[in-house]
């Protein structure tokens, strides 16, 4: 039977939290880098992904059967695309 050492658990969590907190506080060039990461994530996930990169199959079809039928249709009827 596994024994959980309950009193230690919150202390360990607190220590981990403090480890990260102090690490972030003491950063120098890291602050600039986190700023860049934040801007980049905002651009990628909120601007680019939402406005410019909808998932074509998820947006246009309701379920996997419809999606599979669409692809099958593409592969068997839409043969005019130039490959090069």
């Amino acid at each position: 039977m596994v024994k959980l050492n309950k009193p230690n658990f919150p202390i360990k969590l607190k220590k981990i939290f403090q480890f990260y907190l102090e690490g972030f506080k003491n950063m120098r060039v890291g602050k600039t880098l986190w700023g860049i990461i934040a801007i980049k994530f905002f651009l990628f996930f909120f601007i680019m992904k939402i406005l410019f990169f909808p998932n074509f199959l998820k947006e246009n079809f309701d379920n996997d059967t419809q999606r599979a039928n669409h692809i099958l249709n593409e592969l068997t009827t839409n043969l005019t695309k130039e490959s090069k």
């Binding site: 680019m48 410019f52 990169f53 909808p54 998932n55 074509f56 199959l57 692809i71 593409e74």
Partner: peptide, 11 residues
């Protein structure tokens, strides 16, 4: 992102 939008057949 590009896989899902531009290359959906492939994806």
């Amino acid at each position: 992102f590009e896989f899902g939008t531009n290359w959906s057949n492939y994806s």
